[in-house]
């Protein structure tokens, strides 16, 4: 049980693919101009990550280490192609607005990274959970960044959510304020870099605060065990 808790902590915070490992930044920066796009790509990545983790874990006994990388790549590419076809068929407009970044999920190093570092060494249940949490951590950062950029750039939230979630989601759209000219800086990739920078800074700030607090506690309590923080 504690292992699952640890995986959750690693995926969402300590080892977040987007904030700490800084993997998969290309799609992260490119598609987070709106919450809908970010959520779409986040979910697609989550699915691929879980699928590839489970598969890699299930076949790990039969795959000799010499050919593991090509096998991982094949597994990931298969899942991405399947996701791409499904999105093309069922969420066509979102598929169009994400465009090239769906096939580019293949190149998201976070996925092969998890396959190599975790799934190839652990049973499938744990690998699935790890994939889910890593994917969720990635998706959350995507959505947060997408939200920031959409609000600052367009003054809206959940614009076009119906493309992903169906017609009922059209009412999710919130117009926070009227913009005559969208703030291009927020919408273009540089805005994504700046936004991501602020999110990472925020995370580091929280970490530093918590570390400072822990230190204080440590000083009052005699000789608390220090866990190695990498």
């Amino acid at each position: 049980m504690s292992e699952f808790k640890e995986l959750t902590r690693q995926g969402l915070w300590e080892n977040n693919p987007a904030l700490v490992q800084l993997l998969g930044l290309c799609p992260l920066l490119a598609v987070t101009a709106s919450v809908t796009n970010a959520l779409g790509l986040g979910l697609a990545t989550l699915f691929v990550l879980m699928g590839s983790n489970i598969t890699v874990s299930l076949v790990r006994q039969w795959v000799p280490s010499e050919i593991r990388i090509p096998v991982f790549v094949m597994v990931i590419a298969t899942f991405v192609t399947i996701i791409q076809l499904l999105m093309n068929a069922y969420v066509y407009e979102l598929y169009q607005s994400l465009g090239i970044f769906i096939p580019l999920i293949v190149t998201n190093c976070a996925i092969i990274g998890r396959a190599e570092a975790y799934a190839s060494k652990n049973p499938w249940q744990k690998a699935a959970f790890d994939g889910f949490m890593m994917g969720l951590g990635f998706a959350l950062v995507l959505v947060l960044l997408g939200g920031m950029r959409e609000v600052i750039g367009n003054g809206t939230l959940f614009d076009g959510a119906e493309l992903l979630l169906g017609d009922w989601a059209a009412q999710l759209r919130i117009e926070l304020f009227e913009v005559n000219y969208p703030l291009l800086l927020a919408i273009l990739p540089p805005g994504a870099f700046i936004g991501l920078g602020f999110i990472i800074a925020g995370k580091n700030w929280i970490d530093a605060k918590r570390a400072a607090k822990a230190e204080k506690v440590e000083k009052t309590v005699t000789r608390a065990r220090v866990t190695a923080e990498s």
Partner: peptide, 25 residues
């Protein structure tokens, strides 16, 4: 042989999904 086997399975899966989604696309 193992790699070839994986390639065959992967191709088969993709083809199956493609066949299922072709009409819809």
């Amino acid at each position: 042989l193992l790699l070839a086997l994986f390639a065959i399975i992967a191709t088969f899966l993709v083809l199956a999904v493609e066949a299922l989604t072709a009409d819809r696309i």
